[in-house]
Design a protein around this nucleic acid. Sequence first.
RNA 1: GGCCCAUUCGUCUAGUGGUUAGGACGCAAGGUUUUCAUCCUUGUAACAGGAGUUCGAUUCUCCUAUGGGCUGCCA
Length: 509
Amino acid sequence: MSSVPVRVRFAPSPTGPLHMGGVRTALYNYLFALKHNGTFLIRIEDTDQTRFVPGAQDYIMDALQWCGIMPTEGPGLGGNYGPYVQSERKEMYKPYAEQLIAEDKAYYAFDSAEDLDRMRDQAKTMGMPNWQYNSVTRSGMRNSLTLPQSEVEQLLAAGEPYVIRMKMPRNRDIRFHDLIRGWVVVNTNNLDDKVLFKSDGMPTYHLANIVDDHTMAISHVIRGEEWLPSAPLHVMLYEAFGWDCPEFAHLPLLLRPDGNGKLSKRDGDRLGFPVFPTNWITAEGELYSGYREKGYLPGAFINMLALLGWNPGTTQEIFTLEELIEAFSLERVSKAGAKFDPEKTKWFQQQYLRAQSDATLAEQLRALQTIELSDADLQQICALMKERATFPQDILTDGAYLFGRPTAFDAETIRKKWKPETAAYIQEWKSIVNSLTEFSAQTIEVSFKTFLAEKQLGIGAVLLPYRLVLTGVGAGPGMFEISQFLGKEEVLTRLDLGLAEVEKILHEA
RNA sequence: GGCCCAUUCGUCUAGUGGUUAGGACGCAAGGUUUUCAUCCUUGUAACAGGAGUUCGAUUCUCCUAUGGGCUGCCA
């Protein structure tokens, strides 16, 4: 590593909620920073005033916090390189653009957006799919390179709208090193004269990004692969200003699990999984669901994301955040895009849910809804249900009969498993239960097995019916544990109620 | 269309100029379990194609194909 202190940034634009691809980019930045005792900061890139979405910035900060990705500098956090919102830095960009003009590395352009649209349309009808404002075409446009200097001054004085464009040199190979991809070479003939400064007085992403990364002393630019094509422009800007280039690392994209294409906003709820860390409700009231609200634990979400495009080189898959920091390296980030796998995400969630203590899980359940049970009882339920749940709410739904008497009975299983003599066995078992003085799982089991042995019955002949009568369903934790948890009185009551329900169902058939 | 990036089981991936190409998810089978889940065992399934370099290429080079990204006064 170089001797330059590591400072990395995550630079989202507040145009909507942050999707999981963005979270992963933030995560890799964060891991890299902490691994190298560096600084991770957030910068809000809101130079496009037309796409600003109220609430998006707060969403981003909240979502990152839920994920445990904690910036040490950023909006609302302070830091010595602020402000950390580009619109609040507005005044500092123009002088840089003007400096480039003075050095003949950029120029004023007076063509209106409509003029440019026309040029593009015209080119398209002539069979050229992408017209560009570049070293060839700029000679035919209205700019400070084609207009007489006096006219340019006049236009500027008159307040004519203008943009400032990069004057891209011809036929130069731009080489830069990417920590993930190695050397990348692009010829400037394929690059256009990008707008650096817009007519609304704001810089474009390209200018603001370079100025801010430089003035914020960013050492490594770790961002999505969608920025790779504009990286040569950025390299040229650093060069034009005479600044040292930071290191670059362009991350592979997150792809949709089905078909192809980059994971996007609408995929999630269409395909049945969230693409956002937390719920987002649009101004129109449309809901995009989030991992948090679906019941995912942040650790599981982050763990899954970390392994999507990076691997530790070992077979370890479950990582705490601390372990991720320890193990992370950009060299082990893969080059190709990764299809997101909702199934594996559930597997991570299951692992994390099970690893939680009963007490923690109990708290989570109480956060979901009001539960009229003692902590001891609730934790008992958690212990019983944890192994068969993926989400906390599964305990509530799959184990509903532990919170109260069953309201529904699985008619199909009852019809399949219930024999004419079954009711009599259950009655006999009930009187045995009634006679028990100690009601622990162990004693219940012993009594039950003794009863079966006397009757010369297989365990399945009575135990499943017993389960159905008590819980209404055919699957769940051990029946003796359930019996102990419910207690003798409740078991006796449910035996009566359940038996009646079963009779009803059998009569219907 | 142009430019750039990529390509190992269905998916995430490991890996090497000579390996029975490894792991995980999923799926399937078996075992454990009264049931379900868990757990254990086993199985399933991959180096995109074609040239070249080489004694030998999945690994190196080139071409093709495929996928992805970019191509805005969006970021």
